[in-house]
Amino acid sequence: MSDFPLTRVFVYGTLMPGERNASVAAQGGRFEASAAHLAGFRLLHLTPEGYPGILPGDPGEEVRGHALTYAAGDWAHALPLLDVLEGVHETPPLYRRERVTVTLEAGGRVPAWVYVYADAARLSRPGVWPVPRGDWRSVSGR
């Protein structure tokens, strides 16, 4: 483990470039977005909420998204914004932040944070749909 703080987050839904919460990611500061995927997780779409969540899945499953790598000096500002959007500190939490390894489409595997859906009670109610191929942008009517 490195002595340097991890300043990368894997996003797979509304925080991706071009999506409705991309501006929240941008408020955090300077970052580079790289297409990436996360193996061993499955992607769900929640309606009527209109956003996705991921859960641990089978080794063959994967989620497609982007790795946002923030400038080291901007990370301290970005992380609290992202945590608030994802409801990390709500009671009960909506998502929890976990450390994972993602594969960049350009090649290489890198460590990143990811927000994993944490509201187990919500998953037992109607409106939870698996997303084929792990690509949230393929969901119509999001």
Score class of each variant (00 low, 15 high):
M1W: 09
S2P: 06
P5M: 12
L6V: 05
T7Y: 03
T7M: 09
F10W: 08
F10Y: 06
G13H: 01
G13A: 08
L15R: 02
L15Y: 01
P17G: 08
G18E: 05
A22Y: 11
A22C: 08
S23M: 09
V24N: 10
V24W: 08
V24C: 12
G28H: 09
R30H: 13
F31G: 07
F31V: 07
F31S: 06
E32C: 11
E32T: 15
A33Y: 04
A33V: 11
S34R: 15
S34A: 15
A35Q: 13
A35C: 12
A35D: 14
H37R: 15
H37M: 13
A39W: 12
A39C: 13
G40M: 05
G40V: 10
R42E: 12
L43Y: 00
L43P: 00
L43K: 01
T47Q: 14
T47I: 06
T47A: 15
E49K: 11
Y51C: 08
G53C: 03
G53N: 02
I54P: 00
I54R: 00
L55C: 06
P56I: 01
G57M: 01
P59H: 03
P59T: 05
P59N: 04
G60F: 09
E62R: 14
R64A: 10
R64C: 09
R64V: 14
G65D: 01
G65Q: 02
H66T: 08
A71E: 15
A71Q: 13
A72R: 13
A72L: 15
H77Y: 02
A78W: 04
A78D: 08
L79T: 00
L79W: 07
D83N: 12
D83F: 04
D83K: 04
L85C: 07
E86N: 10
G87C: 09
H89V: 01
E90S: 11
E90T: 11
T91V: 14
T91Q: 14
P92M: 06
P93K: 05
P93H: 05
Y95T: 11
T101Q: 11
V102Y: 02
V102Q: 00
L104N: 03
E105C: 07
G107Y: 10
G107I: 03
V110R: 06
V110L: 14
V110N: 03
V110P: 00
W113P: 01
V114G: 00
V116R: 13
Y117G: 10
A118H: 07
D119I: 03
D119V: 04
A120Q: 13
A120M: 06
A120G: 10
A121N: 04
L123T: 03
L123K: 05
S124E: 15
S124C: 11
S124K: 14
R125W: 09
R125L: 15
P126Q: 06
G127P: 08
V128W: 06
G134L: 00
D135L: 02
D135K: 02
W136E: 01
W136D: 00
S138H: 04
V139P: 00
V139A: 00
S140A: 14
S140M: 10
S140P: 14
S140D: 11
G141E: 08
R142Y: 02
